[in-house]
Design a binder for these strands. Structure first.
Length: 292
DNA sequence: GGAATCATGTGAT
DNA sequence: ATCACATGATTCC
């Protein structure tokens, strides 16, 4: 339900409290999924009322906690991978899903840095950045005059390490805090009602040649689909490089926009995520909510 | 089935 | 050179 999703973004408290609550619920659901803890048990452990919890969670994801748990289950992940023999990662795929409904994905146009620019390690580049509230906790947005260059996530109090993680990727760049400049990007990215805009979201991929190829592949995965690391390896023409692909996916500087959370292990299991597995689950569950 | 073990490409030191 | 990986296939119990 689109309406839910929009309000979810708007209603997140300045402290990022909603995500924090939701994060803990997800954590509990996935670590103790064997026991299938009831809503009451979870609420009790969080010292919250069951109805309140149910409400917050549903508003956030568009999905009840129970439906959410199902959505991030192995079974569902496999369905995301499979799907009636569609040719994986073809350009046709892009159209494939937007047909029947309004299942638009974020409309992105990308551009890669030239090898020369990459060698400069960000030298001569001015990067403006700012922190913004997102459905997945505090988001660090980084832009250049050519477009969005970085998107990272930090839990409360982790802003500094998060910034350093990003800044060390382009050590020679000049960094300027400019919340006003990054704000429109944050708004656009996390508000699904703005995804199918006239103007594509401009994105700059700064990385090695191999990494950029992997990230471009990721951008071809539509909402509601997933691929394996070996699918990606095949797509860039190096079928035996699935492990290298994994490493490259992990270095993706624009998480969420470049949908690295849609890369799964061959078994359908969620393998790893730079900003925490819980966040990966959160993103997949949240996207499942968008599809309703 | 599941644990242990290899083959493997890329990027950082 | 060497090492750590967000992998995957194979080979043992």
């Amino acid at each position: 339900m689109l309406v839910n999703a929009v309000s979810a973004v708007r209603d997140v408290t300045p402290e990022g409290g909603d995500y924090e609550t939701v994060r803990r619920v997800i954590e509990m659901l996935t670590t103790d999924y064997r026991e299938q803890p009831s809503l009451e048990t979870i609420a009790a452990r969080l010292e919250a009322s069951p109805t309140q919890l149910q409400k917050v969670f549903t508003r956030w994801a568009g999905l009840s906690p129970k439906a959410f748990l199902q959505a991030v289950t192995l079974d569902h992940a496999k369905r995301l991978l499979g799907r009636e023999g569609l040719p994986l990662l073809d350009t046709a795929l892009e159209v494939g899903l937007s047909g029947p409904g309004r299942l638009h994905d974020l409309f992105v146009s990308h551009e890669a840095m030239s090898p020369g620019e990459w060698k400069a390690r960000g030298g001569g580049l001015t990067i403006r950045y700012g922190y913004h509230i997102s459905p997945f906790g505090q988001a660090l947005v980084m832009i250049t005059d050519r477009g969005l260059a970085g998107l990272a996530f930090a839990d409360q109090g982790e802003e500094q390490p998060c910034f350093e993680d990003m800044a060390q990727r382009w050590p020679n760049a000049e960094y300027v805090e400019d919340r006003a400049a990054t704000e429109p990007y944050a708004k656009r990215i996390f508000d699904p009602s703005q995804w199918a805009s006239e103007q594509p979201l401009r994105v700059v991929l700064i990385g090695t040649d191999f990494q950029v190829r992997v990230w471009e592949s990721l951008l071809k995965i539509p909402l509601g689909r997933a691929v394996t690391y070996s699918d990606l390896a095949c797509d860039i023409g190096q079928p035996t490089a699935s492990r290298a692909v994994g490493a490259a996916v992990g270095r993706n500087p624009i998480s969420f926009v470049v949908p690295c959370h849609r890369a799964l292990g061959k078994s359908g299991a969620l393998t790893g995520y730079h900003w925490g597995l819980t966040r990966k689950r959160a993103m997949l569950g949240w996207e499942a909510g968008q599809l309703l």
